[in-house]
């Protein structure tokens, strides 16, 4: 595993992603849902909304990094608001 050059921050990052995927898989099995149509006018399930959240969060973080010199943790706050909006309205 040494060749993979692991660090604690990246390990935590992947653990968070893995636990999100496991949680949403369990939720999908235990509480199946029908897709809904939100503000984007596209059908989405919980899994789709998670994907939109994660992909959007990656771009929010990149934009924050490229456009501002402020601390990166604030971008995480913006991502949390974005995630709430996606799960509520998309």
């Amino acid at each position: 595993m040494e060749w993979m050059a692991w660090t604690w921050p990246t390990a935590i990052f992947f653990m968070v992603i893995a636990s999100l995927l496991i949680t949403f898989t369990v939720l999908a099995i235990r509480f199946p849902e029908t897709p809904r149509i939100g503000v984007l006018r596209i059908e989405t399930t919980r899994g789709d909304r998670l994907f939109i959240t994660l992909l959007g969060s990656a771009f929010i973080n990149l934009a924050w990094l490229g456009l501002t010199d402020m601390v990166q943790w604030w971008a995480l706050g913006v991502c949390a608001v974005y995630a709430f909006l996606v799960f509520r309205y998309v």
Binding site: M4, T7, T10, F13
Partner: peptide, 30 residues
């Protein structure tokens, strides 16, 4: 996963890595 690990570190070979944080992303974006 390995690429993600590399993206936050610097190396001069010999499998030795040094923490660089988000510096490479910042450099690339600008």
């Amino acid at each position: 996963m390995t690429v993600v690990n590399y993206s936050v570190q610097d190396t001069f070979g010999n499998n030795q890595f040094f923490w660089a944080g988000l510096e490479w992303f910042k450099e690339m974006l600008r």
